[in-house]
Amino acid sequence: MLDQQLVNALSLGCVYALFALGFTLIFGVLGVINLAHGAVFMTGAYAAMTVMARFELPLWAGLLFAFAFCGLLGLLIDFLVLRPLRARNAPHLIPMIATIGVAIVLNSAAQGLFGAENQRFPEGAISNDTLQWAGVRITVLELGIILFSFVLMAVLMLALKRTQLGRALRAMAESPKAAYLLGINVEGLFYLTSFAAAALGGVAGVLIGLYSNAMSPLMGQPMLHKGIAVVILGGMGDIRGAMFGGLFLGFAEVLSINYLGSTMRDAVTFGLLFLVLLVRPKGLFGTLQERKV
C-alpha cells in the first residue's frame, strides 16, 4: 500500500516540478515573478485539446502544437509587456503586476471562448493501460510525466552548465548590463527564455490536463500557487530546486492525505513553505542574492 502511495507521490511531485521549471526559468533569467504562467499553462491545455478534437490529431501533435502556440504566446507577452518594462528598468514589482493583467486577459478569453465549465480531452487521447510491477500500478501517462520531467530537468541543467548559451544565461542572471558589455545578445536571450518557459508551461498544461482529466479556464490558478510554493521550497531561479521542491511537495501532500486526512493537504503545503522561509529563506538549494551596501 505504501509503495503505491510513493508512486502516486512521485507522479504528483513531477507534475508540480513540470510546472515550476518554466516558472523558475523566467525568475532566474528575467527576474520576473510571472503570475501569468498559470494562464499560459491553461492556454496550452486548451490549445492542444482544440486541435486534437477538431482535426482528430494524435496526442504528440497536440503536445507539439501546445509547445509552439504557448511559446509564441510567451514571445508576444515578452515583446508587448516585459520588454518595455525592462527598457525602463522598472522595479521587479511592476512586471509582476503587469503579468497579473496578462493572466486576467488570458483567463477571461478562455472563459469567453470555451465557457466556464470543465472540459476533457477527446476519448482515447491517451491509453489507459497500466503497468504493474511488484504490486505497484502506474499508468502510461504517469510514467510519461515522470520521465519527461526528469529528462527536461537534466537537459535544462546540462544546457545551463555546459553550453555557451547556458553560460550566457547565467551571466545575464548575475547582471544583464555586464553581460551586454561582454557582447552577449541579452535581448535575444530574454526572448528565448520567455519562449522556452512558456512553451514548457504549455506542454505541462497538456500533461496535467490529461492527468487530472479536467480542464477549466481557471485551472492555472491553484497550480500557480503550488508552483510558487515549489519554487520557494527549492530556491527561486534554481532548476534543480524546482525539481526537488516539486517532489518534496508531492510527497508531503500524498503522505499528509494518507496520515492526516485530505483537508489538511494544503495546510501542510503552506505550513512547510512558511517554515522553510523562516529557517532557510533562500530555499533548499538556492543562493540568496543580497546586495549589501
Partner: peptide, 20 residues
C-alpha cells in the same frame, strides 16, 4: 458582458506600461 474582465486586464497592463 463577457469581455469585461478581459478589458479590465488590458487596462491594468496599459497603466503599468504607460504610467509607471
Amino acid at each position: 458582458a463577457d469581455f469585461r474582465l478581459m478589458v479590465n486586464g488590458v487596462v491594468l497592463v496599459l497603466i503599468v506600461l504607460f504610467l509607471p
